[in-house]
Design a protein around this nucleic acid. Structure first.
Lengths: 239, 239
DNA sequence: CAAGGGGTTGGCACTGAGTTCCCTAAATTA
DNA sequence: TAATTTAGGGAACTCAGTGCCAACCCCTTG
């Protein structure tokens, strides 16, 4: 590299330089046909530097997820005492959707490669699990007071993650032209409905009377009430 | 190999032979310290044969999951028209728990290695996703009539999978001495309660009156009813 | 200005997973 | 018995990932 002429005043950090070179080559030749040597040659850096910034060749496809996971963990920590746990967890997943929405074209590119390359599909699942694990850890702590807390934490984390991922994947499949965060929020409504805590705490009493009117299949209502009660009372746990 | 003397009358198929040799070595030296060459040397077969039976070194740790996944897919196909989808999906996951319970000592061994080796943790997630994918595909088809069917399929599949895995993992953590299938069934009760279809279809009418008595926090009940209704009526979807 | 000293990068050389190609031998079938 | 299929053995190769060390940059300190 010549060093005399101001050098564009700002050299992009090695990480971005490598990621850009990698995505270029992936577009040209595909992920599997591109070797790490190709990437470092295109980036004009040494081979060893690649693995200093990415633990594996697959990881270069997900360059932002590490930071995003940190953001999520940080956000989860901001929960106050009164915060609804499920609500907070759902909101946390939106950080990921927001990350996707920030660079739609790159997200689309990544989506195509993930869809076509088995190794990347697998790696995406591993990345997703990391988010899920962070959510579960947060919920587990919040549900510590109930005996089936750990179980519920896992279930809700998995459900929220699944809802979010489905929304984002649908958003990508449709060209990433709409609002990804809104789509994710809509999808998460189902999770909130099934598992969310009460937003308006009425005074706790000994009786509950629910009277409702609906043309929809009422078995669902009955069933949900029945099992909501069953879930509250017996507190069965597989310790 | 000498071939004159009846050869123990029954040579175990290559797959089991390799898996047994592998587990022996993993116990002795750990997964990471064991090379594929070690395994084939112990098994007394050629190196090439290993990769004929296992696509990767990690896969030898999960030798039964392929067959188990086939079993699950086959079981899911047996759903009759009247069958409750969520119920059937939950029941399907018990096939996996049953597989774990069949060889508790081997399951424990595997658990210890998975817990300690990051590469195996990752690979387990990939395997789990395959089950989840099968469940989701089944539910997606069954929920095809509702607009948010695909989303619900993903959520319920993830929730059922998470509940099952949590139960099995807890079972393993406690030494694999109790009934794994029962533990899984108990854990899945939460999923059934939240997402299961009504087991006793009452006559569909225009009104629902629920009167119940409980010392438990009643906000939960109200909240679940409220959102169950909201979910039935508007049918919002992120298409 | 010179001498460090921490941090970043490059350049090997090495291990080991996974693949390709080809050979051997047994089993099957004509 | 001859031909063909099928299962396994084995050398050689590609490439991801790691360890080690030298070179370099930049900033401090004498």
């Amino acid at each position: 590299m010549t060093s005399g002429m101001a050098e564009d005043h700002r050299k992009p950090p090695m990480r971005d330089l490598l990621a850009d070179a990698a995505f270029e080559l992936f577009e040209e030749k595909g992920f599997e046909q591109t070797t790490v040597d190709d990437i470092v040659a295109r980036a004009g850096v040494g081979r060893r530097s690649f693995f200093r910034y990415f633990p594996s060749k697959e990881d270069v496809v997900f360059p932002d997820h590490e930071r995003c996971l940190d953001d999520m963990v940080a956000f989860l920590k901001t929960a106050a005492d009164g915060t609804d746990l499920v609500e907070h967890a759902c909101e946390a997943t939106l950080l990921v959707a927001r990350m996707y929405a920030e660079r739609p074209e790159r997200s689309l590119m990544r989506y195509r490669h993930i869809r076509d390359v088995p190794a990347l599909r697998d790696h995406e699942h591993i990345v997703i699990r990391r988010y899920e694990h962070a959510l579960a850890a947060f919920l587990r702590e919040g549900f510590a007071f109930r005996p089936d807390g750990p179980l519920h934490a896992e279930i809700i984390a998995a459900a929220a993650s699944a809802a979010h991922n489905h929304a984002v994947r649908t958003w990508l499949r449709n060209g990433a032209t709409t609002d990804a965060v809104a789509a994710a929020r809509t999808a998460l409504a189902s999770v909130r409905a099934a598992w969310g805590a009460p937003p308006t705490p009425a005074e706790p009493d000994d009786y509950v009377v629910v009277i409702t009117r609906s043309r929809a299949p009422l078995q669902d209502v009955l069933h949900h009430v029945e099992h909501a009660l069953a879930r509250i009372a017996p507190a069965d746990d597989a310790e």
